[in-house]
């Protein structure tokens, strides 16, 4: 009897929470479902009934987008740029974070300050300078140039997150590895990196999502159509004179897919990385 009453009370208490969760899901998931439905309908169908169900489902639109609208190229460009940039920013950022977290070297505070000022500079502020520098070094309108800009602009956040995490790794582990005969770089590679994996997954995921969607630098620093990344490709369907809503939705779905996969893959480690306190 007592148990049953308590159970009911417990359930009633959860109602507001469940309501809020449901509301939140509708607000965030609703537009996603809507775009997903639109991606399988033609623009004409959409204008006739904006919230209609895709019947028949036009799966061929994905093939059209991929081939006719140059989406294959954009997707490939985005993949190269983002994968290389994330790999570089992770490698460089992790090494920098390890040094800042572990060694009290002369000028370390200044180095940290300079790197972290990158956090407060808005991209609009540096974009002209980036443009000029890339012109000077003949990297304007190249994927290499864009990669370098992405690394430079995302190193600050990466170092910030990783240093905070690395600093919590007990010093004893490093001392033990030193006694065991390992060099500074080996300690970074065999102790810091594996133990810091949750934090590294976090930065990889964050950087991947942000760079995959990055528009401002890409639109300024790339001009050739066959060098464009996905966010620029989406512009095709939303030109100034016409709006092909149906194809735009299809393009959006293609662009979103890798992010959803990455997030599904890393979300658990990412949440662990963001909430994990000390390393036990």
């Amino acid at each position: 009897m007592h148990m049953a009453v308590r159970l009911v009370i417990e359930r009633v208490r959860r109602v507001p929470l469940a309501l809020f969760a449901a509301f939140y899901t509708v607000v965030t998931g609703g537009p996603l479902v809507w775009v997903a439905m639109m991606s399988l309908r033609t623009t004409a169908e959409i204008f006739r009934d904006p919230y209609g169900f895709p019947s028949p489902a036009h799966w061929e639109k994905f093939a059209d987008a991929w081939t006719k609208s140059n989406y294959g190229t954009y997707f490939w460009n985005s993949t190269i740029v983002v994968v290389v940039a994330v790999a570089l920013v992770t490698a460089v950022g992790a090494m920098a974070a390890h040094c800042l977290a572990r060694y009290a070297f002369r000028g370390s505070r200044i180095v940290r300050f300079v790197i972290l000022t990158g956090l407060i500079l808005p991209p609009q502020l540096v974009i002209l300078a980036m443009f000029q520098i890339l012109l000077d070094v003949n990297l304007y309108n190249t994927l290499t140039g864009l990669i370098l800009v992405y690394v430079a602009t995302h190193i600050a956040m990466t170092v910030y997150i990783l240093e905070g995490f690395f600093a919590q790794i007990p010093q004893d582990l490093f001392d033990a590895a030193r006694m065991d005969g390992y060099s500074d770089f080996e300690i970074f590679w065999r102790v810091t990196m594996p133990i810091g994996a949750p934090a590294i997954f976090t930065t990889v995921t964050l950087n991947f999502i942000v760079l995959w969607n990055e528009f401002l630098f890409a639109v300024v620093l790339l001009t050739d159509d066959d060098k464009r990344t996905l966010p620029l490709g989406l512009m095709h369907f939303t030109g100034s004179h016409q709006l092909d809503v149906g194809m735009a939705a299809t393009g959006l779905m293609i662009a979103m897919l890798p992010i959803i996969v990455i997030y599904a893959f890393f979300s658990e480690t990412m949440i662990k990385g963001m909430t994990a306190g000390a390393v036990r």
């Binding site: 007990p170 582990l173 001392d175 033990a176 030193r178 006694m179 065991d180 005969g181 994996a197 390393v279």
Partner: peptide, 20 residues
């Protein structure tokens, strides 16, 4: 002489076991 060449082994208060 660096720590690794002194041929000593240390047991730490925190044990310093590699968690991974």
């Amino acid at each position: 002489v660096p720590a690794k060449s002194r041929d000593m082994a240390m047991v730490f208060q925190s044990y310093a076991l590699y968690p991974h």
